[in-house]
Every structure is written in C-alpha cells, then in structure tokens.
Amino acid sequence: MAIQQISVFLENKEGRLAETVQKISQAGVNIRALCVADTRDFGILRLITSDNAKVKAALSDSGAVIPTDVIAAKMDDTAGALSGILQILADAKINIEYMYAFTGAADLGAYVVLRVDNTPAAETILKAAGVSTLSDADVAAM
C-alpha cells in the first residue's frame, strides 16, 4: 500500500530548512523519515511524518507543499535485503526516481521509501513477491 509523503519546495538559502522544520516542530508533529535533494536553485524536502494534515496546515504560507505517493517497503535487516527489493523492481522495468531508508522506532525494522514511476504496478509486484509495505495508518501508529 502506498503512503503519503509531503514534499516541500524550498529556496536554496540559509535558514529556510531551519524555519520549515521549526514550523513542523511547533505543530507537534514527529518526522519519521526525511530526505533532502539540493539543486542549484532550490531544495526539495521530502518527509514522512506522524500527521501530514498538521504539516500541510503549518506550512501553508511558506511556499509549495505537495503530497506525493511513495512506497515504504519493509526489509530484513540483513545483507542483500535491499538488493533483493531493487532487483524485483528492475525486473519489472519499474524506474526508481529516488529512495531513502529509515528504521522503525518501535520494531527497529529497516524500511526503504521508494518513489517510482508507476506506484500501483510496483505495489502489486512487491506484494506478489511477499514484501510487506506500510500504510498511512501504520506510519501514524509508529
């Protein structure tokens, strides 16, 4: 099942990231995982949070905030686990735009967040291969 990531478009200037994260903290929201892409002109902050609605409200006046569907796949914390998941997607000709990983606080499980070009197809294939993925409810309960 896909989960919702929040993507925030930030000016590439000192203090923008601090300001944004502070607003999230003031809204009382916990960031489960994050990844920042930096380019010449802007940064893109991608977040998996405990409460996306609150994040959207907290950031409503600070530029572009868009929700994006991503897959959070659970892996065994062993050598080769990530490689196995990526091979499944490669075999199915699914392109990965970007990915990042995090550890579940409660279960200490390893998770990889995948942004792919065809989310529904990727979900179906991973499910068929026995890979479990998180739902929004799972993330909220983490």
Binding site: F9, I44, V65, Y98, R115
Partner: peptide, 17 residues
C-alpha cells in the same frame, strides 16, 4: 512556480527550466 507546478522529482523541475 505555483504549488501545483512543482514536482518532488528534481529532474522534472529541471526539465521545466
């Protein structure tokens, strides 16, 4: 950019540029 013109994928934004 308007919020809905922005993409979370770097390459998409660069393509627009």
């Amino acid at each position: 950019l308007l919020p809905d013109q922005f993409s979370d994928i770097v390459a998409e934004n660069q393509k627009k540029e």
